[in-house]
Design a protein around this nucleic acid. Structure first.
Lengths: 146, 146
DNA sequence: ACAATTATGGATATATTTGTCTTTTATTAT
DNA sequence: ATAATAAAAGACAAATATATCCATAATTGT
């Protein structure tokens, strides 16, 4: 459904949201090992998320690392998709027609439209913060370890 | 959601199902221009669908081309996904965790599970034949042209 | 000031996907 | 038989995605 880059982006962001804050920044090493992703590749992704798109924040030097502002925590997961330029998955025709629409629907359009709507809601409804919050009882995971 | 190859595979198959039959085989040129896909690349995809996976049939030479057997027409669209090795989209974790499950769910698992179920139904419920049939009144399209 | 730390940035490498082009093989009609 | 037709097959090219490595810049603590 999504590229590896976007998968890592979502995993990393949720991890940072759950484990980090301004007083406890998380290093790229911890992040990448925790979410099971290649370190340097993940670092670049976090740059994307922090650079133009203000989803995560970072500082360098000792005790530096990644964290999220309380404002960013309010963002929906969809903001990550947008930052990664993969929001189109929630919009485009399932068989790749660029003219597919209500007027010229593809054979799967009618049914898929309803699914897309739910996908949009899934990524729109809950904030990153809420997801991270739900994880705190230890019943949800973003790790492949153990 | 799917690779270009799979998008082309679905479009081509539905096109062949609708326009072709054993007495009226469709050439790769007509197919690729009709569904708006690169000709030779599409040809390779049709080979995949005809080789091991008996989804489409073909014959060479004059009046040759592609068509579908009445048996193949009964297959669901999901058979195309399987042939293209993209059936995993309907199974894997939305954020790419390979350990994501009911026991160790990711933060999006519960909601996404329901969506995956509908995706499976979408690609499982209707046969390629039925889709092609629905197109015959000219209210559904798999072309980008005009 | 200096050394240690940690993200940033750039260069490069590898793999995969997508796309094109040419030759070969099978089939048909003449 | 021969020529025309059309898919099959193989080689190659381009684009994109994924991944690694190294140097640089910023920050902190001493």
């Amino acid at each position: 459904m999504f590229s590896k880059a976007t998968e890592y982006a979502i995993r990393a962001t949720i991890y940072i949201a759950q484990k980090g804050n301004i007083d406890n920044k998380i290093g790229i090493n911890e992040i990448s090992t925790s979410i099971d992703s290649p370190q340097h590749f993940t670092a670049k992704i976090l740059q994307i998320l922090s650079k133009k798109n203000q989803i995560i924040s970072s500082t360098r030097g000792p005790n530096g690392g990644f964290y999220m502002s309380s404002k960013a925590l309010k963002l929906p997961v969809r903001a990550i998709l947008k930052a990664m330029n993969e929001d189109t998955v929630l919009e485009k025709c399932v068989i790749g027609l660029n003219k597919c629409s209500e007027i010229k629907p593809c054979p799967l359009h009618k049914q898929y439209k309803l699914i897309k709507l739910q996908l949009i809601q899934l990524f729109e409804n809950k904030s990153i913060e809420e997801l991270a919050e739900e994880m705190k009882d230890g019943k949800l995971y973003i790790t492949n370890k153990k």
